[in-house]
Structures are given as C-alpha cells and as structure tokens.
Nucleic acid binder design. Structure first.
Length: 263
DNA sequence: ATGTCATCGCGTCGATGA
C-alpha cells in the first residue's frame, strides 16, 4: 500500500491539483500539510467521494494538517502533546491516525514542523522546542514496538547533499546545526529515514522555492521526510517522489513523497 | 537570498508567513 506526504500550500489554491493527484497516484494514506483552512472549509465530501476517510486539524489562514485514508481510522489524535513547562500551542501541526493492516496495527503521524525563520526571533526556539516535543512523543510511541511512520514537512535539510547550494543555507533555520542535530537525535531513537534508506543519490529534492527560478535551476532542498520505526521499516518496499507535479499549473512549492508499504 | 505565492482583513493593497 502507498503512504504519502504532501505540503500543498493551501487547499483553496491547490484544490484541483490535489484532486488530480489523488486520482492519478491512488495513495492509500496521505498526510497533507499547510491546508491553510479551518476544518469546516476543507473539501471533505469531495475527497470522501474518491474513497477516502478524512480527518483534519485545521486553523484559520495558516498551518493545518489532514489525514486521508482508504482504511478506516481506529483512532485519531490531534496536536502534539506538551512537555512540562510548555506554553499552550495554538498551531495546528500534528495529526495521528491508527489503522489495522491485515491483522496488525499501523500508526501514521502527519507533521508540519515549524519553519523557524528568522532565527533571531521567537520562531527558532519554538521550532526547537517543537522538535523536543516530537522526540519525547516518538520515544514513547516506539515503546509500543509497532509499525509507526512519522511523515511530513520537517523543515530540516538533514545534510549538505540535501540542497543544491549548501552555502546559501548557512544560518537558515532549516539548516542550522541545532535543527539538524535535533533531526539526527530523532532518527537515532531507532527510525529509518525512507529516502536515504533507498538511495544515497544527490539532487534528490522535495521543495523548490517559488522565487528566483529555483525550479528551472533545480535549486531545491529535501525537507519532506518519512521516518519508520523498525517494525515499519521491515515492510518498506519502495520510495518515490512525484516531482512532475512541480511543473503543473499553479503548483505547490513542495511535491508529494511516498513509500510502498508491504501490507 | 529573493526575480513568488497564499491568505486575511473590510477593502480593490499591505501585512504576514513561508
């Protein structure tokens, strides 16, 4: 079965592209980020008509995540738990679904990790604290020893090979040592990162900026990731990036990334 | 590193976020 992530950069602007891609790619489970919509404004019934169960965690104007699944949801959780001392978090960036695949469980968490720029603002510490929360949550989930996939827009460029021009990203929140180190710490809990489990190739990107002809110059970055628990990694059969959607009319700046999971 | 894009607000552009 096909499990995918896509930062669509607004469901209102991307409505037709999302429907077209669902019809074309036929994914079984999809995590969408940046729906930029409240739950009531999400085109739920239209996507249900394509055979999906739909769960959203939206907010007005910004952020917002959704889970679409051809399998029924056994459980849905919205929002990443806080740690002791954390302030309330109003931002909709996390949704988790539990499913039954064959006779076993599968957990899928869709995340939209904070961008963190500019680094001299409160946004950067918010990013790092969000990553600490994600690590704590993931650590607890791993104790279940179940197939778990955490996928979405991580807003982290893991290594220099994951961007066209590393020097241009020096100092950026996506490439700061603190961000990369927190991402590595998460992986080192025991996750396999699907794209790098499949290939060591360079110029493998998932995002191209709208500005300065980034797409035409292939000036991209790899920031949309899929992390698999050991139980899920055992079933990883293939990985792919739907790069062609970046040249569609009115594209998102991100493209869908997906894996084939042996059911 | 900015040649862009999406959204909101009550306004037909500016602020904000990425």
């Amino acid at each position: 079965m096909k499990i995918a992530t896509w930062n669509i950069n607004g469901i209102k602007a991307r409505h037709d592209n999302v429907i077209a891609w669902l019809r074309e790619a036929q994914p079984d489970i999809v995590c969408l980020q940046e729906i930029k919509s409240v739950d009531e404004a999400f085109p739920r019934s239209e996507i249900e008509a394509l055979g999906y169960n739909v769960e959203t965690h939206g907010q007005k104007g910004f952020n917002g995540v959704a889970l679409l699944s051809k399998l029924p949801f056994d459980e849905v959780n919205r929002g990443l738990p806080l740690l002791d001392g954390d302030a309330e978090d109003e931002q909709a960036r996390f949704i988790e679904g539990a499913f039954t695949v064959g006779d076993g469980p599968l957990r899928v968490a869709g995340i939209y990790l904070p961008n963190g720029n500019p680094v001299d603002s409160a946004k950067f510490p918010y990013k790092l604290s969000w990553m600490r929360r994600l690590e704590a949550w993931a650590r607890a989930r791993l104790e279940l020893e179940e197939p778990l996939i955490i996928l979405g827009d991580y807003n982290v460029i893991p290594e220099p090979v994951d961007c066209h021009d590393p020097r241009a990203w020096e100092g950026d929140a996506l490439f700061r040592p603190e961000s990369r180190s927190a991402f590595r710490a998460l992986c080192h809990l025991g996750f396999s990162e699907a794209v790098r489990a499949a290939t060591a190739a360079s110029e493998v990107y998932t995002f191209w900026d709208f500005q300065a002809g980034a797409w035409q110059k292939n000036n991209g970055i790899r920031i949309d990731h899929m992390l698999l628990s050991p139980e899920a990694a055992d079933r990883l059969a293939a990985v792919s990036i739907d790069k062609h959607t970046r040249s569609w009319e009115k594209p998102s700046d991100h493209v869908p990334v997906w894996l084939d999971y042996a059911a």
